[in-house]
């Protein structure tokens, strides 16, 4: 029996998706406009605003910082998050059950509060360099993603394979690297890439830890928007959407995008 969907519901759904995608189409259109102000539909077509990104050193510099920060912060959170996810999945009996909740804390505590607290304690209180505080902050906010996505992979991993290797004389650390890691590769890649995009887009942590010296791309965009209203912001936005497309392609190939509905 085929379920019929009420036409009103279909109409609402169509409108919702137009609402979701329309504004992004507007940005793409505005980035191509041959005008010195943002407008849609574009008047005349030009790629000038894309080349203009690279004329503005504040954009190229912060783009570099953002990418390095996203890679560094994510790598840091992976290095400690994978072992934590492993411990939680492998030693479920030995560890107290609340331990998993601790890794949810960075989501539970409002990011902006965490950003403010890190600025107050680390950067201002202990004189930790801004870039180091940023790195730690980004590693913290992506930790829940890495632990959760890698954990999902580990939950479907059969640990008796690892036990078999150990009982045949393979040292534990070696069994981890040669048996466990290759089996959870999909989760690690997907976790890395989701954490990467989260860090790349972060505002609430970075806003407190950036200044005239060090800034990230989203913060630079915010600052630029308050002074200028030219299509360069739109073209930077389109570049960032390109990164999103790449991220989605990787997630689709590893865990599948439906993973995000779970």
């Amino acid at each position: 029996m085929k379920t019929r969907i009420h036409p009103v519901l279909i109409f609402i759904t169509v409108v919702t998706f137009l609402f979701l995608l329309g504004p992004l189409v507007v940005i793409i259109g505005a980035s191509l406009s041959d005008t010195s102000y943002l407008t849609f539909p574009p008047q005349g077509l030009t790629l000038h605003w894309y080349s203009n990104i690279f004329e503005i050193s504040a954009f190229t510099r912060t783009m570099g910082t953002s990418f390095m920060l996203a890679i560094g912060g994510t790598t840091l959170s992976m290095l400690i998050g994978i072992p934590a996810a492993y411990a939680l999945a492998r030693y479920r009996v030995e560890l107290p059950s609340f331990l998993g909740n601790i890794f949810v804390l960075p989501i539970l505590i409002p990011e902006i509060v965490l950003g403010f607290s890190l600025m107050k304690s680390l950067a201002s209180g202990f004189g930790v360099p801004i870039i180091a505080a940023l790195l730690v902050g980004h590693a913290l906010i992506v930790l829940p993603y890495t632990v959760r996505v890698v954990g999902a992979s580990l939950n479907s991993f059969d640990f008796s394979i690892e036990e078999a290797a150990v009982s045949l004389g393979c040292p534990r650390y070696k069994a981890f690297f040669t048996v466990v890691l290759p089996n959870i590769r999909a989760g690690i890649i997907a976790g890395f890439i989701l954490a990467f995009i989260t860090s790349l887009n972060d505002v609430s942590i970075s806003i407190f830890l950036t200044g005239p010296g060090v800034s990230t791309l989203p913060i630079q965009l915010l600052a630029h928007m308050e002074q200028f209203f030219d299509p360069t912001i739109a073209s930077v936005s389109v570049l960032l959407m390109g990164v999103t497309v790449a991220v989605m392609a990787v997630v689709e190939r590893t865990l599948g995008l439906t993973f995000l509905t779970k």
């Binding site: 998706f17 790349l200 936005s237 959407m241």
Partner: peptide, 18 residues
């Protein structure tokens, strides 16, 4: 689902800018 994930993974700044 792709159409819903795409805006979700696009940054807050970009989406507010729109």
């Amino acid at each position: 689902i792709i159409a819903a994930v795409f805006p979700l993974l696009t940054g807050v700044v970009v989406r507010s800018f729109a």
